[in-house]
Amino acid sequence: MKRLPAAAAAFLCLAAPALAEGDAVAGKTVFKKCAPCHSTEPVNRVGPTLAGIVGRPVASVGDYRYSAAMTAFAEGGKMWNEALIAEYLMSPKAMVPGTAMAFAGLRKIEDIANLIAYLKAPAGH
């Protein structure tokens, strides 16, 4: 697995407290960048459903066909926890080279924190 540059990794470590305090209402707005390909309902689109992603094993939506790169990345039982989602959202292609996800990533850590807060409870926002 390709790692993020040291500066980005340090940034994530410093921002860790912010991840726990994301604003789900603001995250709903950030999710609009994801919505063309993903849903928070249990329905797949171009990408797999993101319903229940926090705490779910990577590449585990049963009725979705993942890329070979994402399937390989999932080996070893990786789970989508907040830290892994945050790292992935910064640069999906850097974290999972060969992923089919075309999205370049989110640059603002507050957008990432807000999106994660929204993904934890989308129905309430």
Rank of each mutant, 00 (worst) to 15 (best):
R107W: 00
A74Y: 07
N114L: 09
A100L: 08
G77P: 03
P36G: 01
A26I: 01
S60G: 05
L4Q: 13
K28I: 00
G98M: 04
A100V: 07
K93N: 06
A86G: 07
M95P: 00
M101A: 06
P97E: 03
A83S: 13
F103N: 02
Y88Q: 05
D111G: 04
L12D: 11
P57Y: 02
P5A: 14
S67T: 12
C34A: 01
V96F: 03
G22Y: 09
E87Q: 14
C37D: 01
C34Q: 04
A68K: 12
E21R: 15
A86S: 12
G47N: 09
L84F: 05
P36T: 04
A100E: 13
A104W: 00
T49V: 05
L115K: 05
P57E: 11
S91A: 15
K32N: 12
G124P: 00
A83G: 07
A6S: 15
Y88E: 03
E110Q: 14
V58T: 07
N81Y: 04
V46G: 00
K120Y: 08
T29K: 13
D111V: 02
A102D: 01
N114V: 09
A20T: 02
K108L: 10
A59T: 01
R65V: 10
W80G: 09
M1S: 13
A68R: 11
S67K: 05
E41N: 02
A24H: 09
L115A: 08
I112C: 11
V96G: 00
A18M: 12
E75R: 15
N114K: 09
V61R: 13
V96R: 03
K32H: 06
T99A: 07
N44D: 14
A123V: 06
K33F: 04
F103K: 03
M70P: 00
R45N: 05
C37G: 02
T40F: 06
G76H: 10
L89F: 14
F31Y: 11
A104F: 01
G76R: 09
C37S: 06
K108I: 01
L119Q: 11
D23T: 04
T49M: 06
E21L: 15
E21T: 11
A59P: 02
P42D: 14
R107F: 00
R107I: 08
I116H: 08
D111W: 09
V46F: 02
K32T: 14
G52Y: 09
R3P: 01
L19R: 08
I116L: 12
N44A: 10
A8T: 13
M79D: 05
Y66F: 14
A100H: 08
E87D: 01
A94I: 11
A113I: 12
S91E: 06
M1V: 13
I112L: 03
A59D: 03
K78Q: 14
A51S: 12
A8D: 13
A121L: 02
M101C: 07
F31I: 09
A113P: 10
P97G: 10
M90T: 14
L106R: 02
L50D: 06
M79Q: 13
V58K: 05
L50E: 07
G76A: 12
R107V: 13
A6L: 15
R65F: 00
P57L: 03
E87M: 15
I53F: 04
K93T: 11
V61L: 05
V58M: 05
K120G: 11
A121H: 12
M90R: 15
K28S: 12
A15H: 08
Y88I: 08
P17M: 06
T29Y: 02
G27E: 09
